[in-house]
Design a protein around this nucleic acid. Structure first.
Length: 782
RNA sequence: GGGCGAAUAGCUCAGUUGGUUAGAGCACCUGUCUUACACACAGGGGGUCGGGGGUUCGAGCCCCUCUUCGCCCACCA
């Protein structure tokens, strides 16, 4: 009989051929077993069983960070989802109604970029296709190839509730997006702003502050002399890292307290190359100690300069276009000399520097290290650009989110991230949510060009102007991907339908498991949206895990070629090995180092442990046999040997250690973490280690050896030994199920029955009870 | 510029409020195919806990300082 057969027909009727193969073959077991879990609905949560709806169980909810719909599983996903699955499986066994909501994210910019690349390869482009055809094409692409990652998650054993799989661009979740936008619009928290934003000239869209990442760059500080109008002997030298923007200068700002320039304030300077006259102004923005103490002010191409410009009522001439080429528009056309028009910004920089040099306006060039913002999707240097965008006013949303962490309704682990969270929220800036893309949720705002009525945000499409009856025009922009992500914990449960059973049963949820990188992008915004739209936090614990890196501590990435394909590991060592390695090897918030060059070295410990467990199982099933065993509580304590007492004591200790490592499940009755609880628990590595120690060092190395003669001798004492052995192993399998579900389930199905048939209270170990310690054997000493 | 983290055995890491000879896995050495397991078992070697200073009866753990890596944030013109 093969393992697969054995697993599919769990039986304790020990037929002679019912022997386990000498080696465990994960590949033969895992996918079939997963299918059986699926068929039995072990992962499916039922709101009617939840105490919030009159049921008997506590809910335990985790929402999966939705991977990009076009993503394929990488080892980071493997780590992230292994952690979530351990927690969910643990709580499911412990009697909670555990719900793990899976799904995918439409990933606006990322997906649009993928499809645009495909189109380019086909010799066409999105503009050639037009908006409607492009969106259709992308939808089709997502439909045919998207979501593969969800299948891969099943292969690593993720026990998510697939009946509730969400997708941010699905109809129900899109309705939630529209509802959220319109509500915020009506509350005055969404507004149209005219200001300098981050612009990616390759993606051709604006970006939020968070999407424009700083990269350290070795640049230069160009010192340029601006001569005073009417006094060629007098001049001010400005320092800039971006000389090409000088074409758009409208002033030079000096510090009001800078004596060097006091006499210049109010005078006019002549801008080299264009000859435009600009004033010298005094503004606190300028730091007299930096550079030359004089700053050129380019309101259209620098966010700070824009603010300075506003204070001094200066124009904001545009000299760089959307594709980052030198070009004026409207009144500013003449500011860009004909020979520079249409020239790329970096090429223009070289040429302008040369022109300045020729005119004697270039004083010097000094090497200067600074940080430059790049597009987080394509690495292109971001261009500050003056434009009209939709913003969310964040301060009113941030305040309750700040309080939630300060008062202990939410804890963030490791705790040090709480300071980072608080610091960010205290200095929060408004969120630019409009994107000049086609792939995403279209901004639900309608304009009437005919009568100029105020723009209307609407839950349903408006085709005719309410004021004048002419056809309206919908806003062309789509919303930031994260504007749908931040609703994920409520939208996947049915919001805005507040009578949804899922929402009532499973919200607020419990834990969010993710990497620190998206603390601002996502985690904090979900807290804000949960508090704002549902009046409660989406989770009480934020668990931030580390990053998977190679042996040189480099982040694993496709471009470096240092990645580990989790599916490769699954095929070679099994999902359980992968999971074990991740969970046992990862301290709280600590990076996991794995060697992509040597999978054997990285995953052998997990594989070895599984083999050990397998062999314990083989020993048990052959030596103990398949005859029913007595229930432990029916055995007179006096019949137990000191070895029996010892192993039962060790088991109790192991259970206690596992429980302690996993820690408090949820905050106390007032819904707030106490100081003591705040950092307790969630030590998955300590939990794995405690379970491993019991199984290997105590059960296998000691008790199994001690019990061999008794089993051989037979008689009543052999039956006692059999009962204790089965009890200990049964509990060991229960302790380990959350981490290595496949192997433990396979072995558990073959444990002999108890005399009263109670050993299997459930068809699956996945739904069996989490172990409880035995009160009569409180300590682990013999 | 501000903040945070890490530095413990050859490698990857544990060491919870300071308390007996500092631990695990892998690697290494010596035995052993002992009828569950050589992906194993029995035993063993190996660490001035980054440097310096301090508090204490006592410090890997607390304080100061330095060095080296890494991360986050920032209106580095």
């Amino acid at each position: 009989m093969s393992i697969t057969d054995g697993a599919s027909k769990p039986t304790a009727s020990g037929s002679p051929d019912d022997e386990l193969p000498t080696t465990y073959s994960a590949a033969d077991v895992e996918s079939a077993l997963y299918a059986r879990w699926q068929a039995a609905g072990t992962n499916t949560a039922d709101p009617s069983r939840v105490n919030r709806l009159g049921g008997a169980r506590e809910p335990y909810t985790i929402v999966m960070p939705p991977p990009n719909v076009t993503a394929i599983l990488h080892v980071g996903h493997g780590l992230n989802n292994s952690v979530q699955d351990v927690l969910i499986r643990w709580r499911r066994m412990a009697g909670d109604e555990a719900l793990w909501v899976p799904g995918t994210d439409h990933a606006g910019i990322a997906t649009q970029n993928v499809v645009e690349k495909q189109l380019a390869a086909e010799g066409t482009s999105r503009n050639a296709l037009g908006r409607e055809a492009f969106v259709a094409r992308t939808e089709q692409f997502v439909e045919t190839t998207g979501g593969e990652i969800l299948q891969q998650l099943k292969a690593i054993g993720a026990s998510a509730d697939w009946t509730r799989t969400g997708y941010t661009l699905s109809a129900p979740l899109s309705a939630a997006v529209t509802e959220a936008f319109v509500r915020l619009f009506e509350e005055g928290l969404v507004y149209r702003g005219h200001r300098v934003i981050h612009w990616c000239p390759r993606c051709m869209t604006s970006l939020s502050d968070e999407e424009a990442e700083f990269n350290d760059t070795q640049g230069a500080l160009y010192h340029i002399r601006y001569v005073v109008d009417g006094d060629p002997a007098a001049s001010i030298t400005v320092a800039t890292t971006r000389p090409e923007t000088m074409l758009g200068d409208v002033a030079v700002a000096v510090s009001p307290s800078d004596d060097r320039y006091a006499g210049f304030v109010g005078k006019q300077l002549i801008l080299p190359i264009s000859g435009v006259r600009i004033p010298v102004i005094a503004d606190d923005y300028t730091d007299a100690a930096f550079g030359t103490g004089a700053v050129k002010i380019t309101p259209a191409h620098d966010a700070n300069d824009f603010e300075v410009g506003k204070r001094h009522h200066l124009d904001a001439p545009v000299v760089i276009d959307a594709e980052a080429r030198m070009n004026g528009s409207g009144d500013s056309v003449d500011r860009v000399p004909p020979e520079l028009r249409g020239v790329d910004r970096f090429e223009a920089r070289e040429r302008i520097v040369q022109m300045l040099r020729e005119r004697g306006a270039l004083v010097k060039i000094v090497a200067h290290a600074h940080s430059v913002r790049h597009c987080y999707r394509c690495e292109t240097v971001v261009e500050p650009r003056l434009s009209d965008q939709w913003f969310v006013k964040m301060a009113p949303l941030a305040q309750p989110a700040l309080e939630a962490v300060r008062t202990g309704r939410i804890r963030i682990l490791p705790e040090r991230w709480e300071a980072v969270y608080i610091n960010w929220l205290e200095g929060i800036r408004d969120w630019n949510i409009s994107r000049q893309l086609w792939w995403g949720h279209r901004v639900p705002v309608y304009y009437c060009d005919a009568c100029g009525a105020a723009p209307t945000a609407s839950r349903t499409p408006i085709t005719q102007c309410a004021a004048c009856g002419t056809a309206t025009r919908q806003d062309e922009d789509v919303l930031d991907t994260w504007f749908s992500s931040w609703l994920w914990p409520i939208s996947t449960l049915g919001w805005p339908n507040e009578s949804s059973d899922d929402l009532k049963a499973f919200y607020p949820g419990d834990v969010l498991v993710t990497a620190p990188e998206i603390l601002f992008f996502w985690v904090s915004r979900m807290i804000m949206s949960g508090l704002h739209f549902m009046g409660d936090v989406p989770y009480h614990t934020v668990y931030l895990h580390g990053t998977v890196r190679d042996m040189q501590h480099r982040k694993m990435s496709k471009s470096l070629g240092n990645g580990i394909d989790p599916m490769d590991v699954v095929h070679r060592y099994g999902a359980d090995s992968l999971r074990w390695t991740m969970i046992a090897g990862m301290g709280l918030g600590v990076d996991v180092l794995l060697d992509p060059q040597d999978l054997e070295k990285s995953f052998a410990p997990g594989r070895n442990f599984l083999t050990k467990l397998w062999n314990i199982g083989r020993f048990l099933l052959t030596k103990v046999g398949s005859d029913p065993v007595e229930r432990l509580d029916r055995i007179a304590p006096l019949s137990l040997t000191s070895a029996d007492h010892w192993i039962l004591g060790r088991l109790t200790v192991a259970i206690r250690e596992c429980d302690a490592a996993l820690g408090p499940v949820r905050p106390g009755a007032n819904g707030r973490w106490s100081d003591a609880e705040r950092s307790a628990g969630m030590r998955l590595d300590a939990y794995a280690d405690a379970a491993r120690r019991f199984v290997w060092n105590e059960l296998a190395d000691w008790y199994l050896e001690a019990v061999k003669p008794r089993l051989i001798a037979g008689g009543e004492d052999a039956d006692v030994a059999r009962a204790v052995l089965v009890h200990a192993f049964d509990n060991a399998l229960r302790l380990l199920q959350p981490i290595i579900p496949f192997l433990t389930e396979t072995l558990w199905a073959r444990l002999p029955l108890r005399l009263d048939g109670t050993i299997r209270e459930s068809e699956f170990l996945a739904n069996a009870a989490w172990p409880a310690g035995i009160a009569t054997h409180p300590d682990g000493e013999p």
